[in-house]
């Protein structure tokens, strides 16, 4: 069940989002960011708050298929959008290939930047702009990792890209 804000003095705006395939209707104040909506209203806490300023990438989610910093998105402005969070990519028993690659490569330590890294990496592969290791690193630079798992993250992404390329070749 969706929770709505019902407080005096607050202008509430209706918002409909499709989050991980599920339609969610809420009434929120315009000041609510997509990040806080996900974490505090929908209890989808896989999307992390590291800086709340677009300076770390921990809140990266896919909005209409594009990776964005959820902390800088006012939720009202995303009315009608499709949102995919880390919870929508896979489950512990059925990991998305990128999630599996992160586990296989030990591409995280504390795990806090990890959902953002994975969402960002999934989008990176879909964007198709990164072909070399340098390009992977550059186009992942909006996701900081204080545990310093960068080389393992790059390796995990490389694995998924190689796997996707291999699968494509096999299909052709």
């Amino acid at each position: 069940m969706d929770q709505n804000d019902r407080r005096p003095g607050a202008e509430l705006v209706p918002v409909t989002l499709v989050v991980n395939g599920e339609t969610r209707r809420l009434e929120i104040e315009p000041a609510v960011t997509l990040l806080d909506l996900l974490r505090e209203r929908l209890h989808l806490t896989g999307t992390k708050k590291g800086c709340d300023q677009g300076q770390c990438g921990a809140c990266t989610v896919l909005v209409d298929g594009r990776r964005v910093n959820a902390c800088l998105q006012l939720a009202v402005m995303r009315d009608g959008c499709d949102v995919v969070t880390i919870e929508g990519l896979g489950t512990p028993d059925d990991l998305h290939p990128m999630q599996a690659a992160f586990v296989a490569r030990d591409a995280f330590q504390c795990g806090y930047c990890t959902p953002g890294q994975i969402c960002s990496a999934v989008a990176l592969v879909a964007e198709g702009q990164a072909r070399t290791p340098d390009e992977i690193r550059e186009l992942m630079s909006g996701n900081l990792c204080r545990c310093g798992a960068y080389s393992n993250i790059a390796a995990a992404i490389g694995d998924v890209m190689a796997g996707a390329a291999g699968a494509k070749e096999a299909a052709e």
Binding site: G54, N69, G142
Partner: peptide, 9 residues
């Protein structure tokens, strides 16, 4: 400039 995420928005 910025990051892939920020450039998307």
């Amino acid at each position: 400039g910025a990051s892939a995420q920020l450039r998307n928005a």
